[in-house]
């Protein structure tokens, strides 16, 4: 067999023929970035290649890096390796990286989901020989409900809180999840406030052409004191849960929007009232569908329940293994999808 097109090094996933890294966790010369989450896009590299729709987000996150934007499907050649980016459906600008060299095709998935999301381009399967897939929710207990049903639940929770004079505080990762919540809720129920971290990214989404309902940053002067929050929806990053900042919305009902909320223990541990099962990662059926559609003969699982997914695939006749990356430690579970910024 030919030398692998992608291997793991100290700095991360590396393409030796093309001499570039994918989502490196150390500063390197040339980096291809799948998406703007902090564990995938790190500052300090010489040059960056990323999908054009995520350009504004990377500017905000990395401070205007030396970035070449690439349209989805457009190809560039690096040392004889054809590189193209394809929608991953994870967050705005998220991409799968397709590498082709002498007829051998590899795809690095980055993070992805198959559900509809109005804030980003939907996932597109890419045929390949070797597929490096995330496996954050690689257990069959993780199955997502239809987004419409989920948002109906969120709306009825918000409405009931409003009618009871409570604020509705929803904790959601500030890049991606927060905007998906914004795009999904019924903004006619009440005003929407955001934590500063959420507002910054939401602004970048708007500047990227994504339409979202109006929001007001909590930090900005709000008239009416305590009363201003009653009936409102407040969107904040999970790190704000339990902070003095979050206390000021009392009386309030707290909720978390995350795939981890599928399991009751994860919500009860946070002592939140509600857990909305809303993830930007593929669920178990989603992972299996995506893998099948690549027609890959070899699958490398990483980032999540990698060993479980690999064993399942092997048992079902696909050559599969685990590739250890630092996008999450082996069998990472409850770590935030987005480390603090």
């Amino acid at each position: 067999m030919a030398a692998p097109l992608v291997e793991i090094t100290d700095a991360g996933l590396y393409c030796p023929v093309g001499d570039f890294h994918i989502d490196p966790w150390k500063p390197v010369g040339r980096a291809v970035i799948t998406h703007a989450h902090a564990d995938h896009a790190r500052p300090g590299c010489g040059s960056y290649l990323a999908a054009a729709p995520g350009r504004r987000l990377l500017d905000v996150r990395l401070g205007s890096p030396n970035l070449t934007p690439l349209a989805y499907g457009e190809t560039v050649v690096r040392n004889g390796v054809s590189v193209s980016l394809h929608p991953a459906g994870h967050v705005l600008g998220s991409a799968q990286v397709r590498l082709e060299h002498r007829g051998e095709i590899w795809v690095v998935s980055g993070d992805y989901k198959l559900e509809a999301d109005p804030t980003c381009t939907p996932f597109e399967p890419v045929r390949c020989h070797t597929f490096i897939t995330e496996s954050t929710f690689g257990l069959p207990v993780y199955r997502w409900d239809a987004p419409a049903d989920l948002f109906a639940e969120v709306n009825s929770w918000w409405r009931a809180n409003r009618d009871a004079g409570l604020a509705s505080v929803i904790f959601a990762y500030s890049l991606g999840k927060a905007q998906r919540v914004l795009a999904g809720v019924d903004a006619t129920i009440g005003p929407i406030f955001t934590h500063g971290a959420v507002e910054r990214i939401t602004q970048a989404y708007r500047e990227s052409g994504i339409e979202l309902p109006p929001t007001t940053a909590v930090g900005e002067s709000v008239r009416g004191g305590k009363k201003a929050w009653a009936g409102a929806l407040v969107i904040a990053p999970p790190s704000a849960d339990g902070s003095p900042w979050a206390k000021k919305f009392e009386p309030a009902s707290g909720a978390m929007a995350s795939g981890w909320m599928r399991v009751r223990g994860a919500r009860r541990r946070r002592a939140l009232d509600r857990g909305f099962v809303l993830s930007d990662h593929a669920d178990w059926p989603g992972l299996l569908t995506a893998i099948r559609e690549t027609c890959a003969t070899r699958v490398l699982a990483t980032h999540g329940f990698a060993a479980v997914l690999a064993r399942w695939l092997r048992d079902h006749g696909t050559d599969a293994d685990v590739i250890a990356t630092r996008f999450g430690d082996e069998d990472e579970t409850q770590a935030p999808e987005e480390p603090p910024t």
């Binding site: 257990l139 069959p140 399991v263 223990g265 479980v308 064993r311 579970t333």
Partner: peptide
């Protein structure tokens, strides 16, 4: 074995059954 993996992640038999 996969049921076992699920149970360890969920930590509750009744819930694991319902989720699967």
């Amino acid at each position: 074995w996969l049921f076992g993996e699920c149970y360890h992640a969920v930590g509750d038999v009744a819930e694991t059954l319902a989720l699967l």
